[in-house]
Design a protein around this nucleic acid. Structure first.
Lengths: 238, 238
DNA sequence: GAACGGATTTGATCGAAGTCAAGGACGGGT
DNA sequence: ACCCGTCCTTGACTTCGATCAAATCCGTTC
């Protein structure tokens, strides 16, 4: 908000240059709390496709996403898969207060994490009123988003779903170019879009083509989408 | 847990006989906090179908469900509807920290609420560490459930969805009869089941008939379902 | 920059669920 | 006990998205 950078005497070095220092959960932490975290946290990098957590495995710790995109998914016994969310920086990954992970997490792009051991974060949550409050707000917002997505999965047609996912990604990652168009570098391929939307790859592809034919978007290569008419895309999204 | 009822000197009268006194959020409150609540809360009853909150309306307050079942839903601009959750006693209704309701709530059955004004609950949350913790746990669990339902909506076939909703209701409301069968009084009709499952009324009805033909369940009247083989129902649910 | 391999697009056909249309059962009230 | 309205079930047909099968695109490597 304010343009002046206040001196923060004891903020750990590792946090000072951190891209998410003023976002996500770290936003509400003071120097003392950050020091407690920084003493035990460590940064890791992960290539696209790397598994970061596995459904029903023990929870070893938590991690702030500091760069990249993470896919959250669940699978049915016979292998059918559903993406249940995407996490972008500066979201916190990991299920508090549960000893086993309710879902799988996988790096969708190159990902950088700030890993926090389980007991350290839980201790901090227990001690910091502000952090608990922040995580509660985050959980409630995630819940709203999950329920919104339930409408997409339960009631929207294939085009509407594809338009919805493009809007979702645009909201989190979109940058405007010179002409006011919104440009996206999709963090996920068609297969993941299909798993997120409850469709097949072929149907996603067909609906992308359709939106392209209608002039709402254009596509460069496979991963880059330009949204020409965000209004039209919104209308198309149900 | 324990069979002895401990004397609780200053627990308000209204709470002493309350069905949910030892469940939901009230479980973690001490006499002082309960007194603060009881001083401002009031009980209301609502007939089936009555609107309890409307999407994007101002949030006036919160309410504990003390009896009955509440449907949570969202609608698309053109009227398509999706149920995004069911609330049973002793769940807390209402979206904390938001000035407008992200969804609509409607009594599915006769419902009894313990209504709490907005500022009273928010004040209590600010003051009570334990309550904030409890609500965070609840939000995280609701999030897990919402994501689980996303799998149902995105990846399951019609039979699997119907089996899933029967299991869900059985978990929250089911009673075992003499033969070990589980008996349900469905809190929602076929239309609401359809809206919860992302299907049509006709499809729900056909799949109910199918499960009946297969001997997994039987139906008495429209609302009463007996689950003969919960294992088979689980297998049928994906 | 040519060749390779995985990802994406497109086309043809199939099938599960939706739509439209009766018909039947339940339950509430008289 | 009967009647009536609502909710539910069933049947016939349609449709949207899935499936199967190529063809093509693109990014990468050599």
């Amino acid at each position: 908000m304010d343009t002046l950078v206040k001196p923060e005497p004891t903020v750990p070095m590792a946090c000072r240059s951190c891209r998410v220092r003023h976002g996500g959960m770290c936003e509400v932490l003071g120097p003392v709390e950050l020091a407690r975290l920084a003493a035990c946290s460590r940064r890791t990098r992960h290539g696209s496709g790397e598994a970061l957590a596995v459904e029903s495995d023990a929870v070893h710790g938590y991690a702030n996403v500091t760069r990249g995109t993470v896919k959250l998914s669940r699978v049915l016994r016979d292998g059918r898969q559903q993406l249940v969310g995407l996490q972008f920086a500066p979201d916190l990954m990991g299920r508090l207060f549960s000893s086993e992970s309710p879902l799988s997490a996988e790096a969708a792009t190159e990902v950088e994490l700030c890993r926090i051991p389980r007991d350290v974060l839980e201790g901090l949550v227990a001690d910091s009123e502000g952090l608990k409050q922040r995580l509660l707000e985050q959980a409630l917002q995630d819940l709203d988003e999950a329920r919104e997505w339930m409408v997409t999965l339960g009631r929207k047609s294939a085009v509407e779903r594809v338009a919805s996912v493009l809007l979702l990604i645009a909201t989190r990652m979109g940058g405007r170019d010179a002409h006011g168009n919104i440009t996206l570098d999709l963090p996920i391929g068609r297969a993941d879009m299909a798993d997120f939307l409850g469709l097949t790859i072929e149907t996603v592809s067909r609906q992308m083509s359709r939106l392209r034919r209608e002039g709402v978007i254009s596509v460069q290569g496979h991963r880059c989408v330009v949204i020409h008419d965000i209004e039209a895309l919104g209308a198309r999204s149900g």
